[in-house]
Design a protein around this nucleic acid. Structure first.
Length: 229
DNA sequence: GCGACAG
DNA sequence: ATCTTGTCGC
């Protein structure tokens, strides 16, 4: 996928942490929470990040899947020098460059991107999945394994049970029981996906595991401590 | 001021 | 995220 419309993910950023937070607030205003993806979805892209050389290299994996069969069509791994430490709330400034590198390796743009981490379930409503969506213009949503901000009730024990994740009086996502006896997933919209749809889509992509297929397959690629070929 | 804090 | 094998529970 040629990045013809590639926009700078950090426009005008001065490199400071304060500047990063200010930029997040600005970019968050561009997030669209109305469903704006093609129906029916044809392709999905799952993304995840891992590290090599004690963190010196950031490795982003992407897997393109057929949205109907959930079968993988192609996958790639991008490696870029790590430029930022992990700072809670600023994850996208550390991992987005690698994710965009992986996206650029796809032969075609996906109809929707599924990213490991939060969408709008973030202090300033711009978790990495939302940031990715605004930067690329692609519909996106986040699937996290734990909460960054907000509170929620423990969802019921059945597959599909869910409870709203609340923060400052508004719903920012869901705690979703994707599999019995497993900790709930934290699902939130990224860009061009609504709150309700985000949870429904993730349920649709489950195949017997805690993680939905797009992120499960990308995870497997991103965290292999071997075959750097 | 003290904790909490995606990956 | 990463360092790391077997082990307990369903």
């Amino acid at each position: 996928m040629a990045l013809d419309h590639a926009t700078d993910p950090f426009p005008g950023w001065d490199g400071s942490l304060a500047g990063a937070r200010t930029l997040q607030a600005q970019l968050a205003a561009q997030v669209n929470l109305d469903d704006g993806f093609v129906t029916p979805l044809r392709t999905l892209a799952g993304f995840d990040v891992g590290f090599e050389d004690q963190g010196a290299v950031t490795r982003a994996a992407v897997v393109l899947l057929d949205a109907r069969t959930l079968q993988p069509l192609e996958s790639h791994v991008a490696r870029v020098p790590t430029a930022m430490p992990y700072v809670p709330g600023l994850l996208s400034f550390r991992e987005l460059p690698a994710l965009l590198g992986a996206l650029a390796m796809l032969s075609h743009a996906p109809d929707l991107a599924v990213i490991d981490g939060q969408g709008i379930a973030h202090p300033r409503r711009l978790g990495i999945a939302a940031h990715f969506g605004v930067a690329t213009g692609l519909p996106s949503l986040g699937v996290g394994k734990s909460v960054l901000v907000g509170r929620c009730e423990e969802p019921g024990p059945e597959r599909g049970d869910r409870s709203p994740l609340l923060h400052r009086g508004e719903q920012i996502g869901w705690a979703l029981r994707s599999k019995p006896r497993c900790n709930p997933l934290i699902v939130s919209p990224g860009h061009r996906v609504s709150l309700d749809t985000a949870a429904e889509l993730v349920m649709r992509w489950l195949a017997g595991y805690r993680l939905p297929e797009p992120t499960r397959l990308a995870d497997r690629l991103a965290s292999r401590r071997d075959q750097p070929r």
